[in-house]
């Protein structure tokens, strides 16, 4: 008798577990995924239809199909350019992240360093990169290095400024606690200030990821007018001169896709690092 009851309880429990949603996505998840895709397809379809029915020539506005064909046909050149741009972007981001972090830590340790250097970081940030890129390209002989510097200038500030704010947002009671237990400056930095600053740093990194790409592209445009670059921006310029508008669009698509990929990768990194403890990385149902 009791066995029967137990089995029944087990069966009930099993029934109470909701069925696994297809591909692990809930209805809300599917909506989030499908709604933008449907809109995208509608717009692309409309675009193709417009181009075909009105007979718009491809050197004015190529249709999505023509662009896709070009993307496949010219993949050899385009992917080589993509690699060049991607290398500069990621390198600039890496340098911006490490230098921004180090400088922010210096700022947090010494008020004098912060007061004397921060204004220059702001100047670096507000000066339009388009205006100084030509100078940098003239001064620095190596093209890759000059592009790297341009991209770094644009990407650097959000990381520095965010991390500085983060390092200064430490809980005062926790600081007192560390003091009470005789923690060294290094222990306070490593075990308290840096973990506090982590979400701020990651938010800065996500902004800078996109900016590094923009910086790289802008610098390539400037360098490209002198015929000295080979990245995606240069392909866009070159295709424009040669009236190969579909290829121009194809390169543009790659630039956007790269930006999206960088953003998604950094978002994933941020989520993985913060999901256990930070509000920003929690699923809605997880909060309490």
């Amino acid at each position: 008798m009791s066995q029967v009851l137990e089995r029944r309880a087990e069966a009930l429990e099993a029934a109470a577990v909701p069925p696994r949603p297809p591909f692990g996505l809930t209805a809300e998840g599917w909506l989030r995924l499908l709604a933008p895709v449907v809109i995208g397809l509608l717009v692309l379809g409309g675009w193709e239809w417009l181009v075909r029915t009105r007979g718009i020539p491809p050197y004015v506005l190529p249709g999505p199909v023509a662009i896709a064909e070009t993307l496949v046909r010219d993949w050899g050149t385009l992917s080589a350019s993509l690699l060049v741009t991607l290398k500069i972007t990621l390198l600039a981001l890496l340098v911006a992240a490490s230098l921004g972090l180090v400088l922010a830590v210096l700022f947090a340790q010494s008020r004098i360093v912060e007061l004397s250097l921060f204004p220059y970081a702001v100047i670096l940030q507000v000066t339009p990169i388009v205006a100084i890129a030509p100078l940098i390209i003239i001064w620095v002989d190596d093209v890759t290095l000059s592009l790297l510097i341009c991209a770094w200038i644009v990407a650097f500030f959000p990381i520095l400024s965010n991390t500085t704010v983060g390092l200064n947002s430490t809980d005062h009671n926790l600081l007192d606690l560390f003091r009470l237990y005789g923690a060294s400056r290094w222990q306070v930095l490593w075990r308290l200030r840096l973990p506090t600053a982590m979400p701020f740093f990651l938010a800065g990194l996500r902004i800078s990821g996109g900016l590094a790409l923009i910086g790289a592209i802008v610098a390539e445009f400037v360098a490209g007018t002198g015929g000295r670059a080979s990245g995606l921006a240069y392909r866009i310029l070159e295709s424009g001169y040669q009236l190969q508008i579909p290829r121009m669009f194809a390169a543009l698509v790659l630039v956007s896709a790269t930006g999206i990929a960088i953003f998604l990768a950094l978002s994933l990194l941020s989520h993985l690092l913060l999901r256990r403890w930070h509000e920003s990385a929690m699923a809605r149902g997880d909060r309490r």
Binding site: N173, L174, D176, L180, L192, P195, R276, H278
Partner: peptide
């Protein structure tokens, strides 16, 4: 030992 009004725990730990 000191106990604050808030638990004052490190959220990342």
């Amino acid at each position: 030992g000191f106990v604050f009004q808030e638990p004052t725990l490190m959220p990342w730990a």
